[in-house]
Simulated scan of single mutants.
Amino acid sequence: MARPPSRLVEPIPGEPAATASLGDERVLLIADYHAGIEDGLRYERGVELPNNAAKRRQRVLALLADTDADRLIVLGDLGHRIGGAEGVEREELDALYEAVVVDRDGAITIAPGNHDGEIEALFGDREGVTILPASGGVLGEPPATLGVVHGHTWPDPALLSATTICMGHEHPQVKLADSVGGYRVEQAWLRGRVDPAALVDRDDSDPPDHAGDSPELVVFPAFNERSGGTWVNVEEQGFLAPFLPAAIPDAECYLLDGTRLGAYRSV
C-alpha cells in the first residue's frame, strides 16, 4: 500500500481526519461535521434516520485522545441547517463544545462554511472557540504554517503564504467499478500543489504577487458519512468550490486507508 510522504498534514489511516503540529500545539483537523443532519434530512427530504449525534461526538473525542491533540480545527459546516442551529442540532453542537472545550480543557477553531451562517451568534462569545473569516486564515508560524478554509467562496490570498492549505466543502469520493459491472463509492482525499493564479478570485482588481514554492492543497473527505459527496473521477459531476479543479490541476487521490490511486482524473 502506497502512502504519501511525511508532510505537515498527516491523514489518520481509516479516518476522515488529519493531524498537524504547529509549533508546540498539536491539532486535529476535520471537515463537514454537519451536526443535526438527521433532523435536516427529515425536514428537507422526508428521510428518517436514527440520530448519530453521540456517535459523531465520541469519534471526535476518541481521535483527540488517540492523537493527543490540543485543538480541534473544523474546516467548515460544523452545523447542517443553513438558516442556523436550533432544536436537536443546537443540542448536538452544545454537547460537542462541552465535551471538547469544557471537559477536556481543549480548544476549537472554526473556518465557517456555507452551512454555518449563524455560527458567530452561537459560538462567538464562548471561551476556547476561535472563529475565522469565511475566506479562511493562516495558523502557526514559519516554517510550518497552515491555511484553513471551507472552500465555498474564494479564499483569502494570504493563504498562499501557508505551507499547506486545508479545505472541506467538496466531500470528495471516488466511484470504483469492478470486473462484473458493479461499483462502490468510497471517501477520498485530494492532494496537490496549488496553481496560485487559479486560487484567487479572477475578479480581484489587485491579485497578489506570489513568490516561492506554492503550498500543497489538501481537500478533506467529509467527517459526516451521511452528507453525500462529489465523485471526483466522474466527469459529469462538477466540483463545488469556485476554484476547483483548476487550483490543483495535478491532484492525486488517496483512499482513507492510505491507498494511493494516482491522478484523480484517471481513477
Rank of each mutant, 00 (worst) to 15 (best):
Q187P: 13
V88H: 00
G14A: 06
P196G: 05
V102R: 12
V101A: 04
F123E: 02
S179K: 13
G117A: 03
Q187F: 06
T163K: 11
A188D: 10
K175N: 11
D206N: 15
A134H: 10
L261N: 06
L72P: 08
D66F: 00
D32S: 13
V47M: 09
L160H: 11
A17F: 07
G113S: 12
T164W: 10
T19P: 03
S227Y: 01
D156V: 02
L8F: 12
S135P: 06
D213M: 13
H115F: 01
A162E: 05
L61N: 03
Q58C: 00
E170G: 13
V60A: 00
I37A: 03
G192N: 13
A177K: 11
H34L: 05
L261D: 11
T130D: 15
A95N: 07
L28N: 13
W231N: 12
R265D: 06
N52P: 08
D39Q: 05
D209L: 08
P196Y: 05
N233I: 01
D70Q: 06
I30R: 03
E118Y: 10
E91M: 01
G83Y: 00
P112M: 02
E216N: 06
L122F: 11
E25L: 03
I108D: 15
D103R: 14
L146F: 08
I248T: 04
D195H: 13
V149M: 04
V129R: 04
P13T: 05
L72S: 06
E98V: 00
L159Y: 08
A53V: 00
E170T: 11
L41Y: 04
I30G: 02
G182S: 13
A20V: 04
L49R: 07
T109F: 01
T259V: 09
L28V: 02
A54I: 00
L255Y: 03
S214F: 04
R193V: 14
L41M: 10
I12E: 14
D257L: 03
G117D: 09
L63W: 08
V200S: 04
I165Y: 05
